[in-house]
Write a protein that binds this DNA or RNA. Structure first.
Lengths: 239, 239
DNA sequence: CAGTTCATATAGCGTTGCTATAGGTGCTAG
DNA sequence: CTAGCACCTATAGCAACGCTATATGAACTG
């Protein structure tokens, strides 16, 4: 029920805050919960961190180190765009694994502290994109590309977090990811890269028919037939 | 200093909450502020809206009406993808114009009571994408495309809101927007912005799918399923 | 006119983030 | 060794928060 160890109070506060934040399940975390779990009283918190937000910022800083460590774990593969892709996935995974922490880092917009984190994440991605640019794989300046990709990455992750777990469809992530990477890369990079959006004409046609059927009320099929028909159509569309 | 008019208390509460939310400058808005500005006492608020969140939801609903009105203001241009583009821009403008309201609507992600707003916005976009799909301009099922585009749209808007006004670079928006639209559209749609309008129909789509299925061997359906599927397809095609 | 329902007010509960004040601890200077 | 000092932590409590048990008036209905 309490974080004891022989750690100094400051570390215990950090650990307690991180733990409560990770397990809060979305509800707010109070300073009293934190101080109680840390086995400390209120003034100690404010002595070390100034205020609640200061404590959270410290937690976020630690969380960001972990995030960066994850991003750096992949040795550069020689294919910068492939690295960007893994970076994206790592970002999403980080968000889904620690949603509360992620929300504090990227979701909660506090005009003051947020940009720092975002700027760091942006720099990390820009650095990688720079390599792509050097080898002529980039269609846009790395800085703009990084901002754009990161914005989409955050948007996707927030949307996935907001969804209930069983409904989460990671295709949303991979699809958006490939779209963004495709858009910033040169044709040269697309050819030898593994980004292919080559959809068969079957899929395109199925999608079109599906939409057309939704729009118009055809009476060529009975309702039960139509139901099964649409189901198959969807199966083809999402292949 | 108070919203009087002769409006009923419920409307005054709504107006007061909206006003405070719009001018709060990021800081929290308390029920006491709201009730005081509305010239009402606490129980009135809870009688009409249940709780604070209920009131905010109501404000959001009103805000969403405004949002939708903006989205619908554009008469369909006959070029669905162009409409999607304007939809994107309208979304961003809405966010920048009313950042606090926007944050309540799209930013503040409460994993549980995720505002139905997002779903509504998604539906709105899906509806538009459906038109694109009907005329064969879509590479992906409309539903998935809508989610993906909206996620990126929200991500970009949040990032722009988080930036200080003088630093805001709207190119981030247009670039990401075009990347997403490009990614979900077919080559056909990219070449001539306007495809044969109105000509597409269930029949045309069915014929196209039929032909496409004959040409390629999809393995999404079993042979018996495929047989029945093709039969239905034929029935639709010859109606 | 009695009864019921709706709408608002009085007053206050429990919790929140935070702090004024004071006391204990370990260090260094004389 | 001790006096003084800086650092750290605890006691106690404030103002503001979201919210509610209860009561009162108004308006409609039989």
């Amino acid at each position: 029920m309490s974080i004891d160890g022989q750690l100094p109070p400051k570390a215990r506060l950090l650990r307690a805050a991180a733990e409560l934040l990770a397990n809060s399940g979305g509800s707010a975390v109070s300073t009293r919960q934190i101080t109680q779990l840390a086995g400390v009283t209120a003034p100690t918190l404010y002595h070390h961190f100034g205020d609640k937000e200061g404590l959270f910022d410290a937690v976020v800083a630690a969380g960001f180190d972990e995030y960066v460590a994850g991003e750096r774990d992949f040795a550069p593969s020689g294919q910068p765009l492939e690295d960007i892709r893994r970076m994206w996935d790592n970002h999403v995974q980080f968000g889904l694994k620690q949603p509360e922490l992620y929300l504090v880092m990227f979701g909660n917009i506090r005009p003051e502290s947020r940009p720092a984190i975002v700027a760091d994440a942006e720099a990390l991605m820009e650095e990688m994109l720079n390599k792509a640019a050097v080898s002529g794989q980039l269609n846009v300046p790395p800085k703009e590309a990084a901002r754009s990709i990161l914005a989409a990455n955050v948007g996707v992750t927030l949307m996935l977090i907001a969804e209930k777990v069983p409904e989460r469809n990671l295709e949303l992530s991979s699809m958006t990811r490939d779209a963004m990477i495709f858009a910033v890369s040169t044709e040269q990079a697309r050819d030898n890269g593994s980004v292919d959006s080559g959809k068969s004409s079957v899929v395109v046609a199925a999608i079109a028919l599906n939409a057309a059927l939704q729009a118009s009320h055809s009476d060529q099929l009975s309702s039960s037939e139509l139901k099964l028909f649409l189901e198959w159509l969807h199966r083809i569309s999402t292949s």
